Simulated scan of single mutants.
Amino acid sequence: MRGLSGNSLGIILMVLSTACFTINDSLLKLAMHELPPFEALFLRGLGSTFLGLPLLAALGFLKFVPRMLDGRVQIRNLLELTAAMGFVAGLAYVPIADLTALGQTSPLLLLIGAMVFFKEKLTGLQIGLIVLAFAGALLVAQPGASGFSPYTLFGLWSAAAVAARDLVGRKIKLEIPGLVVAVGAGAIEIIGAGLAGLLLESWTMPSPLTLAFAVGSSVFLILAHWLLLNAYRAASVAAVVPFLYMSTIWALISGMLIFGTFPNALALCGIAVIMASGVAVVALERWPKKAVISDGHPL
């Protein structure tokens, strides 16, 4: 995309990534109507790996497959597995709205990590916009209506793992293609979810439709990881972090179109807040250099 600054390109990639993650989650949720959670994760990992390898071959990336064993790639993908397993474990016991709300703490945790480890600088206004986006996400998710459950903390577990995953992912060497990292995440999911499922669940034979949902989830998961990695490589963490909240809007759209759930007035207000904070971040990104979130250079 010629003519775009690093931060602008990163924002576009992040918005597309959150959309693909939501499609992946929606298809996985449909598969979980028939399958236990870890079996569904196992099938998704299986699909990601066996669909990804021919794609790597077609793009001439097979020579990079051994780089899946790179230390940072392994840590990043183990954290991805930790986040996914925490989310589905919580989903078995508490409403998805509560988990979603705690999941929205991930960008704030990521921002804190970027300031501590990468020394990225933020103004008070920029921090305020990110907190405002979080408040909007809470209006959308509206947690706590069903009372507190200790299993809700699985959502915080998942959020912390996602933040750590993205911090590690941003430091993966540029010569390792993002698609290689994404396929590696699928391979680790096969092992982790497979072992958890064998120990904790009674697996069932999926129907052709359910299997199609799991495979479709795999396709969008690969694409989502590839877009996410390239978003962090193109832009500063602070520039793209607010757009992680787009997942809330995509989830609402998915709920309306696929699951027949519709937002109430508070949720609509939350959407407006998220969109307003996102537009403000874009405006700041184009402001004179003294107001720019960070240097905008990829690592």
Rank of each mutant, 00 (worst) to 15 (best):
P263K: 14
N7T: 06
I75S: 05
A267W: 06
L299K: 02
F64Y: 14
V162Y: 13
G128H: 02
A31S: 11
S8T: 10
A193Y: 00
L156N: 05
L110P: 08
T248E: 15
G178L: 11
I271H: 05
Q126A: 14
G144R: 00
V168I: 12
T100G: 12
G192C: 13
V88H: 02
K63T: 12
N24Q: 09
R170C: 04
V140E: 08
T204L: 03
M85Q: 07
G128R: 07
A212W: 01
V94Y: 06
S277N: 08
F64R: 13
T105N: 00
V282W: 14
A83W: 01
S158A: 15
T100A: 15
P36K: 06
Y245R: 13
A83M: 04
G52Y: 03
W250P: 08
V292S: 14
A92F: 00
V168T: 12
N230G: 03
I176G: 09
E80Y: 13
G278K: 07
G3C: 09
N7L: 08
A276W: 00
A159L: 04
V88Q: 03
E80A: 15
L284C: 05
T123M: 10
L55D: 05
A196H: 01
A31T: 03
G6S: 13
P150G: 11
D70T: 05
G197S: 11
F154G: 03
G128P: 03
R233C: 06
F118G: 01
A159N: 02
G47P: 02
R170Y: 07
Y93G: 06
T105A: 01
V131Q: 02
I271D: 07
V281M: 09
F154P: 03
N230M: 09
I191P: 05
Y245S: 13
Q74I: 08
A101F: 07
L27C: 12
A135N: 07
V237R: 01
A185V: 00
V168Q: 08
L221P: 00
I271R: 09
A235V: 07
Q104G: 00
A272E: 04
L79M: 12
F243A: 13
R165F: 06
S207I: 04
V241C: 01
I96G: 08
L223D: 00
L13K: 10
T204V: 09
I253L: 15
E80P: 02
L9Y: 03
S294Y: 11
L209H: 00
P107R: 03
A187H: 11
P66R: 03
I11V: 15
P263A: 11
L132D: 10
S5C: 03
A92V: 02
S236I: 02
G128D: 05
P143S: 13
I293H: 12
G144P: 01
S17K: 12
G47E: 05
G192R: 00
L257G: 00
N230A: 04
A193G: 01
P177T: 12
P36C: 06
T261Q: 14
F243M: 13
G194S: 09
I23Y: 04
V181N: 10
Y151L: 08
G71I: 02
A267C: 07
D25C: 03
A238V: 15
F134Y: 15
L129V: 15
A239K: 02
L174T: 13
L110T: 12
L108Q: 05
P288K: 10
L55Q: 11
M205S: 06
A265R: 12
